[in-house]
């Protein structure tokens, strides 16, 4: 594999890892606060649809992004209502949200655009376009570093950089702020947080809200940056891969980045099976690469590579003692 192809692959990895990373961090906030969320997929899907729909109608991708975040937040609110207020089963709520999004997006898309459950193609200002970082063109001729800067680091949409910045920000919020300490505590031992006079309900709603925000960005990225418009089921299991990455990362932000880059790289590889074939001499089944994240996660869960221990109070609704 030559240098240019490698750069192309890594560039694709960045683009494909971004929605995974955003969704993974979204899940991280929620699960660290003790709310399991298997509805990441549905929230991304809803955001993808509404962002593409609004961007197509208004012509502004920023309005689309706002609408996408809004759609995702509404689903988050339902999840919060079900799992925090009414102390329902968080997993069942997540499943319901996934189906709600899978069904509603197509039904509404068909009703609004009559294009068989898709939105019109987005172009121009209705999409996030690549931004060129300063001096990228000028430095292009510099050996090795020039192409790396030009191909790999520059030339992504703004949301890619946002996703990357979210990693240190999440780390800082979780481990260096009072809110983060409380958030982590409420996922381990909500009774202790309650005793300290901090509202468990509010903290968990805040975490679920952040989760909705990030899923909204992830979904909007899919429809308005990675691709140009919404198509039915366009998340294609990314929410679940993000969930797998979260376990792979053992619920830690920096490891989430590494896990998502790894899984993004696997997705990039399955798109370029010709490159793999040239490199290792035999054909690797694309299906296999697609499910490799899940197989790896099962291996992690089996405890062969360290044990993945979820937040202790995860999945349990909090009932105040009387």
């Amino acid at each position: 594999m030559d240098f240019a192809t490698l750069l192309q692959m890594l560039d694709a990895t960045m683009r494909l890892a971004t929605p995974l990373l955003l969704a993974c961090l979204a899940g991280l906030y929620s699960e660290r606060a003790g709310i399991f969320d298997i509805g990441l997929e549905g929230k991304m899907l809803a955001a993808a649809f509404l962002s593409a729909a609004i961007a197509a109608v208004s012509g502004s991708v920023w309005l689309g992004l706002l609408a996408g975040i809004g759609a995702s937040m509404v689903l988050s609110l339902i999840h919060g209502l079900a799992s925090i207020t009414f102390r329902g089963n968080q997993l069942i709520s997540g499943v319901a949200i996934n189906f709600l999004a899978a069904g509603l997006t197509v039904v509404v898309a068909q009703s609004w655009f009559r294009q068989g459950g898709r939105t019109p193609q987005l172009s121009g200002d209705a999409r996030f376009n690549p931004i060129e970082l300063p001096f990228a063109e000028a430095l292009r001729e510099v050996p090795i570093l020039g192409p790396i800067y030009y191909e790999l680091i520059s030339g992504h949409t703004i949301l890619v950089y946002v996703a990357l910045l979210m990693v240190p920000l999440t780390w800082w919020i979780l481990y260096r702020t009072r809110f983060g300490l409380r958030l982590r505590a409420v996922g381990e031992n909500p009774a202790a947080v309650d005793t300290a006079g901090v509202s468990v309900i509010w903290l968990r709603f805040a975490a679920v809200g952040i989760c909705g925000l990030l899923c909204g960005i992830a979904g909007s990225y899919l429809a308005t940056a990675l691709q140009a418009g919404f198509v039915k089921d366009m998340t294609a299991g990314r929410g679940y891969i993000a969930l797998a990455a979260l376990i792979f990362a053992k619920w830690r932000p920096w490891y989430a980045l590494y896990a998502c880059l790894l899984f993004g790289f696997l997705q990039a590889m399955s798109l370029r099976s010709d490159v793999i074939e040239r490199m290792i001499g035999f054909q690797v089944n694309g299906q296999f690469l697609d499910v490799l994240p899940f197989i790896l996660t099962v291996v992690i869960l089996a405890g062969f590579v360290g044990k993945a221990i979820p937040p202790r109070a995860g999945g349990e609704p909090y009932v105040k003692e009387r």
Binding site: G88, N89, I92, V95, A96, N98, G103
Partner: peptide, 14 residues
């Protein structure tokens, strides 16, 4: 699928 989701939501989570 929407109806299915609503049934799961109301009979299960809510």
């Amino acid at each position: 699928i929407v109806i299915q989701a609503l049934v799961i939501l109301f009979t299960g989570a809510l």
